[in-house]
Design a protein around this nucleic acid. Structure first.
Length: 329
RNA sequence: GGUGACAUAGCCAAGCGGUAAGGCAAAGGUCUGCAAAACCUUCAUUCCCCGGUUCAAAUCCGGGUGUCACCU
């Protein structure tokens, strides 16, 4: 029997953290973060990591453990999260996946595989330099010779993805598109259910985002950002951590280029766009259950709906709880 | 009160007689190793209003309205 995972994914500022904790408490579970930025240390405020009190309410994993200069990617995530989930099951608990990074959630739950030998940072840098000299079209043409299918699917202007596909083709014995096709067919290593809290009223979501940004400011976002800013100034390459919304928008303010008010407005705008991108991402997940928060009103009601769904689909039974996921079948 | 300049999409703006550039914002979308990233698509039947000149006007002329600047 496959291991059970309950996932809470969805756009920012919809109450995933609180719902995850509620579920963990209700189902004797532990939270496994599914967020590309919450992995970093000392970015607690801006990446909306669970606060000290929330951390005491349920055991959390994969939050705030990485230094700023470390890069992190899907493959690292899938590996770590996979290990964490197994460990949680071994202890007879239920893993609750919580976070808004769609790529991470999909890759983990659908069982995408990433081979170490199919990545080479030095090669990637070399390709990047080449792309700057030759231009995007030439690189795309290069890809179409190695892997016409990928070239068809990836827009020539999307240099990042064109280069990754080339990198893969050079390091692997198969074209990039073949790897994609193969993992599309592979089944999930888990039994899982995805819940996605959303708001029917987009304005309500945007309003919550605005409020949350203001709260971050009150909680010391500037201090955190300033530290990251100094760190970035002194490093050769911008670290992955600097991609996080809420920090990079503040950098021009620290530079004296824009006012604080403008920077804050930019954070809000970028967060709104991010939420929109998350919405389109999750809309493509086949087995996702939306939780309409503007109708459910509270975390409690959302929790009840989750439990109802899990029970009605036979996905969660007492056996899961008592026998550490080795029940049924 | 006088003189001058300007009025083009939610915002910034090009155009200066031949049938509305561009940027920002917005909306929609893509996604398999930086994903809070990267990328794509769509967005003014009309240029403040009225009249005139012309085959043709956002572009020229007259009047009106509004904004700004300077003068009294």
């Amino acid at each position: 029997m496959k291991q059970m995972v309950v996932a809470i994914t969805g756009p920012t500022a919809t109450g995933k953290t609180a719902l995850g904790i509620a579920l963990a408490r209700e189902l004797d579970g532990e939270v496994v973060s599914c967020d590309s930025m919450q992995v970093y240390k000392d970015l607690a405020v801006g990446t909306a990591q669970p606060d000290a009190e929330e951390l005491t309410q349920a055991r959390h994993h994969l939050i705030g453990f990485l230094d700023w200069d470390k890069s992190f990617s899907v493959s690292d995530y899938v590996k770590l999260a996979g290990e964490t989930i197994s460990d949680i099951h071994r202890r007879g608990k239920l893993p609750i996946l919580v976070g808004g990074t769609g790529l991470y959630a999909r890759s983990l739950l659908r069982g995408f595989t990433f081979k170490d030998e199919c990545r080479d940072d030095a090669l990637r840098d070399k390709l990047y330099t080449e792309a700057q000299e030759l231009g995007p079209e030439k690189m795309h043409k290069k890809l179409s010779l190695m892997d016409p299918v990928s070239a068809q699917e990836i827009h020539p202007n999307n240099v990042k993805r064109v280069l990754r596909a080339i990198e893969y083709c050079m390091l692997s014995s198969e074209p990039f598109s073949q790897q994609t096709a193969r993992s599309r067919q592979a089944g999930s290593p888990y039994r899982y259910m995805m819940f996605c809290p959303v708001f029917r009223d987009r304005h309500e979501l945007y309003r919550r985002i605005d409020i949350r940004v203001e709260r971050m400011l009150e909680n010391g976002l500037l201090r955190e950002a300033k530290r990251l800013y100094s760190f970035c100034e002194n490093s050769v390459k911008y670290p992955t951590a600097a991609q996080s919304i809420g920090y990079k928008e503040l950098f021009p303010y620290f530079n004296g280029e824009i006012s604080l008010a403008e920077a804050v407005e930019n954070i809000k705008r970028e967060s709104r766009r991010y939420a929109k991108r998350q919405l389109t991402w999750f809309s493509r997940e086949p087995d996702i259950h939306y939780l309409y928060m503007d109708e459910l009103y509270s975390t409690d009601n959302a929790l009840k709906e989750c439990i109802d769904i899990l029970e009605s689909r036979g996905l969660y039974t007492d056996a899961d709880l008592n026998e550490g996921g080795n029940a049924i079948e």
